[in-house]
């Protein structure tokens, strides 16, 4: 495979802290290997900035394997960049051409305030999970998997929902800054399993209440979240959440 170095112009959002006003700053990076990931390109840029005695750009990252949900970045108008079903850390520089200008912004949502540069506070998601996104009974040691028969289709649908890594791309992509795809993935993955059944009503009610409290918008089923989700969480999970909510509303005490 041919090794090719490309030169890029980066327009990156810089913001000192939550309360300060941010602005775009333009940087040039040269001879970037196309085998690099997008984050590695940022590492190169940050080393360059350190050598120039400037403050490096703050950005979130952890596993760099596409599974932790830590990386964010709104790249050229799309969360996690141009590739489908992909996280920023798995976006490689072969997605770009020599001479490109790339605009990098943080997730924009009232519920995700910017902490610094490209880092936003996503603890709202943690609080939504705490409001009910788990099974609260003490289950003791793991029982034999085959002792509790589960329909294969339900198990698969539940697993597909559990793929959500909580990165917040759905909120970033949504015109309403709604967290419904995230919330519906969490509600669906437990609602489809017998373990999640006893608390299904209180779970959906409490989690929706917490989502509203955090200041996310309401869902209008545009599908922008599904189109950008790195784990391809289906929009049908939102319809399932709606059903769970409606049934809880009609039948709970």
């Amino acid at each position: 495979m041919e090794h090719k170095g490309i030169n890029l112009t980066l327009k990156v959002w810089r913001q000192q802290n939550t309360t300060s006003n941010g602005e775009f700053v333009t940087y040039q990076v040269k001879d970037i290997s196309q085998e690099m990931s997008f984050l590695e390109m940022f590492d190169v840029l940050n080393e360059q900035l350190i050598q120039e005695d400037k403050e490096p750009i703050a950005f979130d990252h952890d596993c760099r394997e596409g599974i932790c949900g830590m990386c964010s970045m709104y790249i050229d108008g799309k969360p996690h960049g141009p590739w489908q079903a992909n996280t920023t850390c798995q976006l490689h520089m072969r997605a770009f051409n020599d001479g490109d200008t790339i605009t990098v912004e943080p997730w924009r949502a009232q519920a995700f305030p910017v902490l610094k540069d490209l880092v936003v506070d996503r603890t709202a998601f943690d609080r939504i999970i705490q409001a009910g996104g788990y099974v609260s009974v003490n289950t003791g040691n793991a029982v034999d998997g085959n002792s509790l028969p589960i329909n294969k289709n339900d198990a698969d649908a539940s697993f597909a929902a559990a793929m959500c890594i909580g990165c917040g791309a759905c909120v970033a992509a949504c015109k309403n800054s709604s967290a419904m795809l995230f919330l519906s993935a969490k509600v669906s993955h437990l609602a489809l399993l017998p373990q999640g059944d006893p608390e299904r009503q209180s779970r959906v009610v409490n989690m929706v209440a917490q989502m509203d409290k955090e200041g996310f918008g309401a869902c209008t089923n545009t599908g922008a979240c599904e189109a950008t989700c790195p784990k391809e969480i289906s929009l049908s999970n939102i319809a399932r959440l709606n059903q769970e909510y409606l049934l809880a509303g009609l039948t709970s005490n």
Binding site: Y74, T103, E105, R108, A109, K175, N176, S177, S178, A218
Partner: peptide, 13 residues
């Protein structure tokens, strides 16, 4: 209400 949830700064792109 939904329009206000983006926060004070919108996306450039």
């Amino acid at each position: 209400s939904n329009r206000s949830k983006r926060g004070t700064v919108g996306y450039a792109v």
